[in-house]
């Protein structure tokens, strides 16, 4: 029972991170119908920027941890957003209106480029970060197994929930969100009611990158080590989460993320750690075979 509870906590934490990344996939797919395979790399860059920011703010003498965290969070968001915007501008926008495969291939190229760029610029060795947020709660201390809920896990889940609520409001209530939904349904018509379609798409990439940056920071804080290759696996898993939840659906991405996190945690906990990635990708295969629209996705027959 205690062990189960611990895996549940770990799974939800992991799932929140996958969910944050998955939103970037699902929003981009919703609006331009392409899978942004470079999104995992954007997340990886978010993690690197976080580490660099920690060091820079450390040198500047900001040692009060909440303040340092806020500063790092903001810098990671801003710089990663700039990467997201640039990727769209140079790798996808020139190919808009081209055949369907073109931006997809360009995305794979962008993904390889970003990986190698970070490897060259930052080195291939893993980058450690000393634990910033330590401590936590412990339950059932008398029993055979002590359940730990660390502060960083609480931060991850709370921050994710806040961002999810914020982004849902943004999509539902604001003019920008309405413009995004309009572009998703009929880009030509959106332009004819005065929506700047190119800017709306750019902002979608920026929003995805901001969430990926938060995920990058949280992972850095959670695990304490990153390298230039973390974007690949996290990206594919978040993509799985987006497909499982129903690609194009925002709540679906979050639900898919949590489910993938739980599957991974329980599989590692009760079966084998070595095969946890296999478990996740079996889910991807099964979803694509039996329910390609995902859990919350709508069948989309008329998509152009």
């Amino acid at each position: 029972m205690e062990y189960f509870l611990q895996q549940l906590i770990n799974g939800v934490t992991l799932g929140a991170i996958y969910g944050l990344i998955a939103i970037g996939y699902t929003m981009v797919y919703g609006i331009i119908g392409m899978i942004n395979f470079a999104h995992g790399e954007v997340y990886m860059i978010g993690a690197f920027i976080s580490i660099i920011a920690f060091i820079v703010f450390g040198i500047l003498g900001i040692t009060f941890i909440p303040l340092a965290l806020m500063a790092v969070l903001l810098s990671a968001m801003v710089f990663t957003a700039a990467y997201g915007w640039t990727v769209e501008r140079i790798a996808y926008r020139p190919l808009r209106g081209s055949f369907r495969m073109a931006p997809l291939i360009s995305a794979i190229g962008m993904s390889l480029f970003l990986q190698n760029y970070v490897q060259l610029a930052q080195g291939a060795r893993v980058k450690p970060l000393q634990p910033v947020v330590t401590g936590g709660f412990e339950f059932f201390q008398g029993g055979s197994f002590t359940v730990r809920l660390s502060y960083i896990q609480i931060i991850i889940v709370v921050l994710t929930v806040v961002l999810m609520v914020g982004f849902s409001l943004l999509i539902q209530r604001t003019a920008l969100g309405r413009a995004q939904r309009a572009c998703e349904q009929d880009m030509g018509m959106a332009a004819l009611v005065g929506v700047d379609v190119d800017r709306t798409i750019s902002l979608t990439f920026v929003m995805g990158a901001v969430l990926a940056a938060v995920a990058g920071l949280l992972v850095t804080l959670y695990y304490g080590v990153i390298d230039f290759f973390i974007g690949f696996l996290a990206g594919v898993k978040a993509f799985t989460a987006a497909v499982l939840g129903g690609i194009g659906s925002l709540p679906g991405a979050m639900l898919g993320g949590i489910l993938i996190g739980l599957i991974e945690a329980f599989w590692s906990g009760y079966f084998t750690v070595e095969y946890k990635d296999v478990a996740v990708f079996v889910v991807l295969v099964l979803t694509l075979i039996f329910k390609p629209t995902g859990l919350l996705g709508k069948p989309d027959i008329e998509k152009v």
Partner: peptide, 11 residues
């Protein structure tokens, strides 16, 4: 959504 530009500016 047709009044997008007015709202975008106001927001």
């Amino acid at each position: 959504v047709a009044q997008h530009n007015v709202l975008m500016r106001a927001s």
